[in-house]
């Protein structure tokens, strides 16, 4: 609880004047995941600075921003691929001291990668079965010796994996190799693999990349189907897609939160337009504000 209050305060660090009135910080008692004051630097390069974001159970949150904004770094920090120099990651009210990537799935956090990230040498079914391994309770020795309990679990995992594939319309692909599938099907398999572990939070890293309009529509439909059951944190460049899927957006630029709130408001935010399209495209007022902030040596959304 206290952690959540901290996050609320940290989220409030996007100063009241900067945050649109309709963009309340969602953190609070009900936060599923909250990152609080997260900073990541690679040598002299600041990838994330004092980023505070929270997501509630069942919510769909979009993280947008131009290339290099820090979106994937944010995911990497949550997943333990990079260690933040500062800040906290709070999962269901408890701060994770050191995020161990291989324990995320047991916490209930699943992630898909940019591209598809399927195991090229494993069949589609085997790929999804790896995702279901969190439900296994027998150890590797049992598996090695082929003990009955382990064999029963194997069957159960296979059934779970087939079920996950069926839910995503990929049951007929179970014995195929990923490389032989169309890109959109590979994405579906990757999603099935992430969902088979029954996560509470799904981190989707550019799921729309490489999909055509029809495939994108299917993906939106699929993600709408998860609404309420699984919290989705989504990173993508495709603004329309993100706005269709997510109720709430957080915009990053140069590693900082520049806007947060409901999708329509964030998309209209001059700082977001400036970040994506340059200052010429932004409203003159916003341009002046941005210039003023730069002169003061203070980035938008600074604490």
């Amino acid at each position: 609880m206290e952690a959540s209050r901290d996050v609320a305060a940290a989220s409030g660090s996007v100063s009241a004047g900067d945050r649109p009135a309709s963009a309340p910080a969602p953190a609070g008692a009900g936060s599923l995941l909250a990152v609080e004051g997260l900073s990541v630097r690679f040598g002299g390069v600041v990838a994330l600075e004092e980023v505070s974001i929270a997501i509630a159970p069942g919510e769909a949150l979009g993280v947008i921003g131009p290339n290099g904004a820090g979106k994937t770094t944010l995911f990497n920090a949550i997943c333990g691929f990079v260690r933040p120099q500062q800040g906290r990651i709070i999962w269901r009210g408890e701060a994770l001291r050191r995020v161990r990537t291989d324990r995320l799935i047991r916490h209930g956090i699943a992630r898909t990668l940019q591209g598809v990230g399927l195991f090229s040498g494993l069949t589609v079914l085997e790929n999804v079965m790896v995702g279901a391994e969190r439900f296994r309770s027998s150890g590797w020795v049992g598996s090695l010796l082929g003990l009955p309990r382990s064999a029963r679990e194997e069957e159960s995992l296979r059934a779970r994996a087939l079920d996950a594939l069926a839910r995503l319309g990929c049951a007929d692909l179970a014995e195929r190799m990923p490389g032989s599938l169309p890109y959109a099907s590979q994405k579906r398999v990757a999603l099935a693999r992430a969902l088979v572990g029954e996560p509470q939070l799904l981190l989707l890293d550019e799921p729309a990349g490489g999909l055509d309009a029809g495939e994108l529509e299917q993906l939106v439909e699929l993600l709408h189907g998860l609404r309420g059951a699984v919290a989705v944190m989504l990173v993508d460049h495709h603004m329309e897609f993100v706005a269709h899927v997510c109720e709430r957006l957080v915009a990053l630029d140069f590693g900082r939160v520049i806007a947060a709130g409901d999708a329509a408001t964030v998309r209209r935010d001059p700082r977001v337009i400036t970040a994506y399209l340059g200052e010429e495209a932004a409203a003159p007022g916003a341009r002046a504000q941005a210039q003023a902030r730069r002169r003061e040596g203070e980035g938008p959304g600074d604490a």
């Binding site: 291989d102 790896v130 572990g197």
Partner: peptide, 24 residues
């Protein structure tokens, strides 16, 4: 075997395997 599946997964893409809970 499940162990073999995890061994193969860890060999093909260790980071992805970690994300799926495999102790690489």
């Amino acid at each position: 075997t499940s162990l073999g599946l995890k061994l193969r997964a860890a060999a093909f893409a260790p980071e992805v395997a970690r994300l799926l809970g495999v102790r690489v």
